[in-house]
Simulated scan of single mutants.
Amino acid sequence: MVSDLSYYTQGADGFTLIPTSWARSVWDPNALNGPAVCAAAAHALERDFSDPDFVPSRLTIDMFKSARNAPTVINTRKVRSGHRIVVADAEVMQDDTMVARASIVFLRRSAPPPGNEWRPETTFTPPEHAFDNKPRFPYMNTDGNEWTQSIGGHQNVARKRAWSTGMAVLPGEPCSPFVHAVQSAESTSLVTNLGTEGIGYINCDLTMALSRIPEGHELGIEADTHITADGISVGTATLYDRKGPYGTGMVTAVSNPAAQIDFSARKGLL
Rank of each mutant, 00 (worst) to 15 (best):
N141M: 12
N141A: 07
N141E: 08
N141W: 12
N141F: 08
N141R: 15
T142I: 02
T142W: 00
D143E: 15
D143A: 13
D143S: 13
G144T: 08
G144M: 08
G144R: 05
G144I: 09
G144Y: 05
G144A: 11
N145K: 15
N145E: 15
E146A: 15
E146H: 14
E146N: 15
W147G: 00
W147M: 02
T148N: 07
T148P: 04
T148K: 06
Q149N: 13
Q149I: 06
Q149T: 10
Q149P: 05
S150I: 04
S150L: 11
S150H: 08
I151K: 07
G152T: 02
G152L: 05
G152P: 01
G153W: 01
G153M: 02
G153N: 04
G153H: 03
G153F: 03
G153T: 03
H154W: 04
H154S: 01
H154R: 05
Q155N: 07
Q155M: 14
Q155V: 07
Q155S: 09
Q155A: 11
N156H: 02
N156K: 01
N156V: 02
V157L: 12
V157Y: 07
V157A: 14
A158R: 14
A158M: 13
A158C: 12
A158H: 14
A158F: 13
A158T: 07
R159G: 07
R159D: 06
R159E: 10
R159Q: 13
R159T: 12
R159Y: 07
R159N: 12
K160W: 02
K160H: 10
K160A: 04
K160S: 03
K160N: 02
K160T: 01
R161Y: 09
R161L: 10
R161A: 13
R161H: 09
R161N: 10
A162S: 14
A162E: 04
A162H: 04
A162T: 11
A162F: 07
W163R: 01
W163L: 01
S164G: 11
S164C: 14
T165S: 09
T165L: 03
G166Q: 04
G166K: 03
G166D: 05
G166R: 03
G166E: 04
M167C: 07
M167Y: 04
M167S: 02
M167I: 10
A168I: 06
A168Q: 08
V169D: 00
V169W: 00
V169M: 00
V169F: 02
V169H: 00
L170Q: 04
L170K: 04
L170S: 04
P171D: 10
P171S: 12
P171Q: 09
G172N: 09
G172Q: 10
G172S: 12
G172I: 06
E173F: 13
E173D: 15
E173P: 07
E173G: 11
E173S: 13
P174L: 11
P174R: 12
P174A: 11
P174C: 11
P174M: 12
C175E: 11
C175S: 14
C175M: 13
